[in-house]
């Protein structure tokens, strides 16, 4: 199926050392992920012995039934869903404003939106922490959501504005010209055209939120999202097998939708997927 090497590639061949270093770098990137899967099945409960003494499936049901794990998982999902919804609304509005209108400070908008993702996470985190302290805001579920939504906006914004820019400029005008008002134009023309971009943006925002630790550390108080729970398990390992399995689940929950999103983006040949 994967047939002959394509003819359009370079006629010269990569030298052996180059090929080996490239393969080495790829292995370096991927072996650790394989190990996560391997350790989910080890019988070793108290250490990270390699090679595993034996393999077992018994941890998987145990991990899934673990209530602490379940609680954090549900909290994380709720945060991610709400942050994604907020990011979708804010990101799409911002993209529409920047695309459709000319106004003073337009350039600054995209710069401001990308800041929370571009500056080291700790800056965003401690900044929010200091606002919480300065204004005596109590830590709640909502402080986490607000923090997450803030750095998720930019991925939605990037995807949507990229789609706008690739669409024909006059499509909206054409629709109005043919008798559709703004709402009809949005429903019949704009939405179908940015639909996949919204979908890709939503998936990216969701996994960004689902994985986040650094900002969350500063906005969560005593609540634990799944990544924070794993982090605390690493600091003081109490239940290694459960942590191993959870780690594997997290990889599956985030990596699969992302591969799906990449496909959407690739199919509609939309360049930008957000930078992180």
């Amino acid at each position: 199926m994967r047939s002959k090497p394509s003819a359009e590639s370079s006629n010269e061949r990569a030298s052996l050392p180059l090929t080996l270093s490239a393969i080495g770098a790829l292995l370096f990137l991927h072996i650790p992920l394989w190990l996560i899967f391997l350790y989910s099945f080890t019988t070793d409960e108290s250490a990270y012995t390699f090679p595993p003494p034996a393999l077992t499936l018994k941890w998987i049901p145990q991990a899934i039934q673990n209530t602490a794990m379940q609680d954090t998982l549900f909290l994380t999902l709720r945060v991610a869903v709400l942050a994604t919804v907020a990011a979708l609304i804010l990101g799409t509005l911002a993209a529409a404003a920047v695309y459709r209108f000319d106004f003073f400070g337009k350039e600054a908008i995209s710069f401001m939106l990308i800041l929370p993702l571009a500056l080291p996470g700790i800056v965003t985190g401690i900044a929010m922490r200091s606002a919480i302290s300065l204004l005596h805001i109590p830590f709640t579920f909502w402080t986490i959501v607000i923090g997450h939504a803030t750095f998720c906006v930019v991925v939605v914004y990037n995807n949507v504005i990229a789609r706008f820019r690739r669409s024909s400029n006059s499509m909206i005008e054409a629709s109005m010209d043919l008798g559709a008002n703004s709402f009809q134009t949005f429903w019949h023309v704009v939405l179908p055209n940015i639909g996949t971009a919204l979908m890709a943006g939503a998936i990216l925002a969701f996994s960004l939120s689902f994985d986040e630790v650094i900002v969350t550390t500063f906005t969560a108080g005593n609540q634990q999202t799944l990544p924070i729970w794993i982090f605390s398990q690493m600091l003081k390992p109490r239940n290694r097998p459960i942590t191993n399995v959870t780690a594997m689940l997290v990889v599956l929950i985030t990596a699969l939708p992302i591969m799906f999103a990449q496909r959407i983006v690739a199919q509609t040949s939309d360049g930008e997927g957000g930078s992180k």
Binding site: L26, L29, H30, P32, L33, L35, I36, Y39, A47, Y48, T49, F50, S207, F210, D211, E212, V213, P227, I230, F231, M234, T243, A247, V250, V251, T254, A255, I258, M259, Q262, K276
Partner: peptide, 25 residues
Amino acid sequence: AVTLPLWTSYVVRVYSWKLILAQEG
């Protein structure tokens, strides 16, 4: 292959090195 790790959970990727670098790892 290069971007997939980026999209995989950050904590989990850190965690994998706990496994790799451990004394018994």
